[in-house]
Amino acid sequence: MGRKQVIFIALLIAILVLLPVVVKKDNIINLALLVLLYICLASSWNILGGYTGQTNLGHAAFFGLGALSTRFLWMSGWSLLPSVLAGGLLAVAFALLIGIPAFRLRGVYFAIGTLALAQILYITVGNVFSDISSLRPQDLATYQLVPRYYFFLVLALLITGTTYLLVNSKLGLGMMAVREEEEAAESLGVSALKHKLLALSISAFFAGLSGGAFAYYHVGYYPRFPFSPEWTFDSMMMVYIGGAGTIIGPIIGALFFVVVRELLALKLVELHLIVFGILFILVVLFLPGGFVEAWKKMQAAFARRSKERGVKVSFQTTDD
């Protein structure tokens, strides 16, 4: 990381930390919280989908399991942090359980397989826990948005920071090698299965923690709601729109997603879904690196142009 980047990141974090102090409006804080929630989900999806090249369409299952178990433990008297941690670990356990058979499937079959498993869980949870889950009266009486906001902020920083360390380590190199060319990676001693399972577990752990944070945040929802496939597809779209396999991509994607959805704000007709769907297809077809790639290309083009100009100038000076 360059000096400029460090300063930029420090500034960004400072803004996020100070936001609830400066802006006292709940609706703004809530919106910022949603951005953070989506950063958590998209970044965790990115670890397996973006960096390891395995399109997991069952991400919502991890989010849902984290939410389900955290809500249960927390409401039955556990303190918050152990409840959330348990939610993350449950998601990892489930990931390992499905990971070994699922990774026997490749490419589109892996995607379909994970989607099917998550849908089964979604329907089952809907049938078993059909009553709405509401916070207890004593929690409602003391409910505050700001600590929830900070909870998500810490989680987003944790996930982003861990991803940064991971992708700059040996294991990250192995994961990306598996994404680029699995057979070549294995011919050089990289165990593809081990790296996929590792990426899946980390991805699931963070999604589980995010689900835990959701259980802490949301006042009342049907237990199956966090298992809904839209969490998966939203995360995936954010990652691709922002830039898959980059640190900043999911962050940009999440910010863009929430802001545009709010601007469209026609939730009744779910217009934003159509907009994002089309945008997603366009990005996949024409801009495989997402916004991050587009930005890099623009910079490169700009650098070329100013260089050409520089050449002209030097010609003029020699003419003189």
Binding site: L173, G174, A184
Partner: peptide, 27 residues
């Protein structure tokens, strides 16, 4: 050929060095 296409040449080779017969975590 099966190169890691989006890696630099150096990163391609590093996969062999980091894994390979004498694995190392020291990038």
């Amino acid at each position: 050929t099966k190169s890691f296409l989006n890696f630099t040449a150096l990163q391609n080779v590093m996969v062999g060095r980091v894994y390979g017969r004498e694995p190392t975590g020291n990038l």
